[in-house]
Structure formats: structure tokens, C-alpha cells
Simulated scan of single mutants.
Amino acid sequence: MEKIIIIGAGGHAKTVVDTIERGHCFEIAGFLAEGRVGERVYKNYTILGADNIAKTIFSMGISKACMAIGFMGKSSIREKLCCQYKKMGFDFPAIIDPSAIVASDVMIGEGTYIGRCVVVNANSSIGDFCILNTGCIVEHECKVGKYSHVSIGAVICGQSVIGERTFIGANATVIQCLTIGNDCIVGAGTVVIRNIEERKTMVGNPAKEIRE
């Protein structure tokens, strides 16, 4: 079985490891993250080192990687790391939990993670390096842009478009046929009933903008 490294060692990384184990798709080599080398992070998996040893890992024949860092206030952090690793030659397969229900015609980009009990319905497309977290629903004919994160229990209703690097909080709802721009944050429990322009932070029911 081909080996894969896990980038990051937080809570989301542990969830990703569980998905990979249950899917029997890769052998986990360990974590690349800040911390003490050899430190046990989850089960018997340990920290191999930080990002500065990635080239050494690649030279050892481990070319598969999984970006397992969750949303850290802005998705550009994950995007920067992904670009660095891709330049080294790493390949990022999509990781899909065995419990997820994904329509056969859904387009899924590289490096995307689809978690437990997620539903993605017909004619939808999910961009590169997205996170669809536990129990979220992406309905028919939706588009989720690259590096975006749809959190636990969120619902994206049919024919809606989520821009790039956008975060949809836990249990948020986006009603049908809406567009949310790039680099937006939609807070937990928010109900979106109108289109949202780029770089907006929205909360509440109905969604209202928070201005800095």
C-alpha cells in the first residue's frame, strides 16, 4: 500500500487519519507539523518533523500528501502550504470517507477532503483542496470553489455557488440558487437568503454583514 504523509497534527488531522484508515487507501507514514520529532499525535502515528524536512520525505519515495490543516481564520494559509508542497512534487489525492454519499457524476478536485456522512448530490463540483466536514450537505448542481471549507452540518441548497477560500460555519444554511463570493466567512448557524459579495463576514438569521 502506498504511503502518505499528513500535513498538520491538530484535531482535523486526526479526523483525516481515521478516514484514511477506514478507507484502506493509503499507509500513513506520519505527520509533518511543528512539535517534538517522535511525539505521538494520534494512535501510533508520530511527528516526523516540520515542513523543512518535506524534501527529504519526498526523496525517500513518499510522494503522496494530505493537507490536514483546517480553517485558521483565513484559507490563504492552507493555499500557501499546498503550493509549496506541490512545487516539491507532492501529489494530493482526494480523501473521501467511506460513509459519505457522493453522486457518481460529481467532480472532485485534488486534495479535497470529504468527511463522515457528507452528502454531495448530482451535477455538483467541488474544487481543489476543499474541506466538506462531518454531516454537511451540498445539494444538486452546486459549485464549491477551491480552498473553501463547508463545516459540520452546514447545508448548501441546490444550484448555489460558493466562491474560493470561503468558510461556511457549522449548521449554516445557504438557500437555493445563491452565490457567495470569494474569501467570505459565514458564521455558525447563519441563514443566507441573498447573494453575498466577496470578502464579507456574515452572521445571523437572516445573514447580516459584520463590518470591521
Rank of each mutant, 00 (worst) to 15 (best):
Y42G: 04
T112Y: 05
S104I: 11
N121R: 10
T179Q: 13
A207M: 11
A94P: 10
R211H: 12
I114H: 03
E39H: 11
H140S: 12
E110R: 05
C66S: 14
P98N: 15
K143W: 10
I95S: 07
I101Q: 09
V119N: 12
Q159Y: 10
E141S: 14
A207F: 11
D91L: 15
P206Q: 00
I57Y: 05
C117K: 05
G145E: 06
Q159V: 11
E198M: 11
A154C: 12
F58C: 07
S148K: 02
A68Q: 07
D97H: 14
G8K: 12
M88P: 03
N195L: 10
I162N: 02
K200M: 14
H149F: 15
I57F: 04
M72F: 04
V191S: 08
C25D: 07
E164R: 08
C142M: 10
S160Y: 01
I62K: 00
C117W: 08
I210N: 03
T134N: 03
C177Y: 02
A188D: 10
P98W: 13
I7E: 02
A94K: 10
I156W: 02
R199H: 14
D128T: 03
R211K: 14
P98F: 14
N123D: 13
I77K: 13
Q84Y: 14
I47Y: 06
K86D: 07
T56Q: 12
A9W: 01
I96A: 11
C117E: 09
I7R: 00
G109N: 08
I57A: 02
L132P: 01
C83L: 15
G61C: 12
G10K: 07
C117M: 14
G109S: 05
G89K: 04
T166E: 03
N52K: 13
V102M: 01
I20Y: 01
I5E: 00
N195I: 14
G73Y: 10
I20A: 05
S148E: 06
H24F: 08
L81N: 09
